[in-house]
């Protein structure tokens, strides 16, 4: 198992990339939040989350079913969102 663990130096590199992404999203935050900017901000957030998940949490080395567990629970939350958007966001008949 131990060879699967990248060296400390690689972890520092990932950390630097994460900070760079943070600065990127801060820079984006300065613009007027058009939909494009918001999309970009969340793309950066997803990138950072991906880096932490795959590199730091070694999701890359885990068997497929562990990834299924993580993304399955995200899919469940997505199902909740999809089913309630019409009632909470559009909310027809709202006073």
């Amino acid at each position: 198992m131990s060879d699967a663990h990248p060296s400390d130096r690689f972890a520092v590199l990932v950390w630097a990339a994460l900070l760079a992404a943070l600065l990127g999203s801060l820079a984006l935050g300065a613009f007027v939040p058009t939909t494009m900017v918001v999309v970009w901000v969340f793309a950066v957030a997803v990138l950072k989350a991906g880096l932490v998940l795959y590199q730091y949490m070694h999701l890359k080395h885990e068997p497929r079913w562990v990834r299924l567990v993580v993304f399955g629970s995200l899919a469940v939350v997505a199902a909740l969102l999809a089913g309630t958007i019409d009632d909470i966001v559009v909310a027809p008949g709202r006073l």
């Binding site: 909740l80 089913g83 309630t84 009632d87 909470i88 909310a91």
Partner: peptide
Amino acid sequence: GDPLLFQHL
């Protein structure tokens, strides 16, 4: 807020 939110949850 919205009472329907709790019903959905």
